[in-house]
Design a protein around this nucleic acid. Structure first.
Lengths: 288, 288
DNA sequence: TATTCCGATAGTGAC
DNA sequence: GTCACTATCGGAATGAG
C-alpha cells in the first residue's frame, strides 16, 4: 500500500504544465519538480486551477475551497498529477505548493485524522507524532536539496569546480576521488517549519529553498511569514514555555521591516524594492 | 481693450474638442460650454493636453507646469480656444476647469499682478479687490445658471411645466405671461468660492454646479474640497476672527466622512459607493 | 487640497 | 498569516532636444 509517486500520468495536467512559459535558460528534464521552474504567471488564471479540481475523479466528491484547499490533497492525493503530488502513503501527502514562495517549495501534509485540523502547537504535543513529522521533514529536506542540486548545480562555482575535477580524471580512478574538491552543500539552502499562525486549515509543514524567489511572492506578509520567527522549525518543538513565538501577535512578525535573507539589507515596507533585490540575490546565490 | 470673448477661432483646438466622445443624449449647440459635457475620459490623455500648450503662440514663452498651471491662462488667455477660455479682459480670465469636478465648473482668475499669487485670505484683505471679485463671481454664477438651464431644462419638471404652458398660449399674449408657472431657479444649483488650502498657486475662484458629477471627480479629497467648509464662499469674506475655517488643518475637512450633497447619506471613506450614488442623484436632480 | 504613476494597505468573498 | 478583486491610501515627480 505504501507506494510513492504512484500517480497515473495525468494527461490534461501535463498539458497545462507544458503551456507554462519556460524560464530563460535550459529546461531541466522532467520530474516531480519540473513545473516548479518559475512560471511567468502564477499557476491559476482564476481561482483554483481546473487541473486540481478534476470532476472526473470519483474520490473527490467534497469541494475544498479557500482555507480548506489542502483538504483535497489529503482526501484524494491520487487524483492529482505527479507535478502536484510528489508522493503519498497512508501517513503523508507531499505536494508542490500551488503558490510557491521560493523556487522550491513543498508541503508535508500529515493524513492522521486526529491531527489533520489541529494547530501545530496542539498537534505536536503528541511527541510520537512530532518525532514522525521531524523524521519525514528530514527526508524532505534532503529531497529539496537534491532538487536544488539538480537545477542549479550548473551555475554553482563550487559544484562546477568539483565537476571539472571529475572530468579531469582520466578513467575511473576511485582512489583519487577522495581528493576531489567538495561540492556545494545544498542542504544549507533549505529551510523548513510551520507557520505560527497558519491560514490554511489543514496541518502543513513547509520545506522550501532559501531564495524566496517566486512570482507568487507578492506582498510583505508572504515574505515575512518565511523570513521571521513566524516560521518555526519542527526541530524546535517542544517549545520552551517562555518561547516568545508562543505569542506571535505580540511579536508582530508580519509588520516587521522587510530584510533581505541573504545580505540583511533592510527595506522597510518597500516590498517592490525588496523584490528587485531578491532577483539579484537569486542570481548570486545560484552561483555560490 | 476690454473685449470679452475675443479669441480667434482656434482651429486645432476645436478639432481636439470634437474628438471627445459625446455623452449619451443629444449634443447641445456649440458654445463656450459645449465641451463640458462629461467626456468619457478626462481631458488629457497624458499630462497637460497639447491643445493647451500650443507652441505656435509667441505670447506663451514661459512654461507653466504642475502647481503653476493656471499661470498660462493669465499670461496668455488669447492663445487658448474658446472652449477653454470663456472670456478675458484686463482684470479677469475666466476658464472652464481643465479637470471639472461638476458638470459645470468654471474658474475666475484675477489678473492683478499684486494678488495673483496670494492666498485668498491675503488677497481679500484688500476690500476693494474683494468687492470686485464678489461682483464678478455674481456674474459668473448667473452665467453658470444659464448654462445649466441650457443643458438640463429639457429634463426639468418645473421648466417643462412652464414650457408646456407657453406652448399652450395661442399667440403672443403678453398679458397672460404673468400667470405662467415659474420655471426652475437654476441659480440655486450653483455653488462658488475659494479653497481654504488651494493646491494651484494662482488665485482662483470656483463657480460650479452642485451635482459634483464628473469623470474628473476621482477621490475623497476632490469631493470634500467642494462639499465641506473647505470651500468658502467669497461672500463670507471678510471672515470673522474666530471663524473655524481660518484653521483648516484642525478641522480636518478632507478626512471627514463622505456625505451626499443632495440627500445627506453618509458613505464614510467609500468613494466608489458615493460615485455610484452621485450618478443616481444626478439623474434625479436634473429632473427636479 | 493641481494630475499621474506606482505601490502599499485594507476588506471582501470564495460553495 | 490561502488567493484574487476592488478600492483606498500614500508618497514622488511633474519640463526638457
Amino acid at each position: 500500500m505504501t507506494q510513492p509517486a504512484q500517480n497515473q500520468d495525468a494527461t490534461t495536467g501535463e498539458e497545462i504544465a507544458s503551456t507554462k512559459v519556460p524560464p530563460k535558460g535550459t529546461l531541466p528534464e522532467r520530474n516531480a519538480f519540473s513545473d516548479l521552474m518559475s512560471p511567468k504567471k502564477p499557476p491559476p488564471s482564476k481561482k483554483v486551477p481546473p487541473l486540481d479540481t478534476p470532476h472526473s475523479d470519483p474520490a473527490r466528491t467534497t469541494t475544498f475551497l479557500g482555507r480548506d484547499g489542502l483538504g483535497a490533497y489529503i482526501a484524494s492525493p491520487a487524483s492529482f498529477p505527479t507535478s502536484r503530488v510528489i508522493y503519498h502513503d497512508e501517513k503523508w501527502v507531499v505536494i508542490n505548493d500551488l503558490f510557491p514562495k521560493s523556487s522550491v517549495h513543498i508541503l508535508l501534509l500529515p493524513r492522521d485524522a486526529s491531527k489533520q485540523l489541529l494547530h501545530p502547537f496542539e498537534a505536536f504535543r503528541d511527541l510520537d507524532f512530532l518525532k514522525d513529522v521531524q523524521a519525514e521533514v528530514q527526508k524532505l529536506r534532503r529531497l529539496a536539496a537534491k532538487e536544488l542540486h539538480r537545477r542549479y548545480s550548473k551555475y554553482s562555482a563550487l559544484d562546477q569546480k568539483r565537476q571539472k575535477a571529475i572530468d579531469a580524471l582520466d578513467g575511473d580512478s576511485d582512489g583519487e576521488s577522495r581528493h576531489l574538491p567538495i561540492g556545494r552543500d545544498w542542504s544549507q539552502s533549505v529551510i523548513s517549519g510551520i507557520h505560527v499562525g497558519p491560514s490554511m486549515n489543514h496541518l502543513h509543514i513547509h520545506i522550501l529553498s532559501v531564495d524566496r524567489h517566486s512570482e507568487c511572492m507578492k506582498h510583505k506578509k508572504h515574505y515575512n511569514s518565511f523570513s521571521t520567527p513566524f516560521l518555526i522549525d519542527v526541530e524546535d518543538f517542544p517549545l520552551d514555555r517562555q518561547d516568545r513565538r508562543r505569542h506571535p501577535s505580540k511579536e508582530r512578525y508580519m509588520e516587521r521591516d522587510l530584510k533581505c535573507w541573504r545580505c540583511g539589507k533592510v527595506f522597510g515596507n518597500k516590498f517592490s524594492r525588496l523584490k528587485e533585490h531578491l532577483d539579484e540575490e537569486f542570481e548570486e546565490w545560484k552561483r555560490e
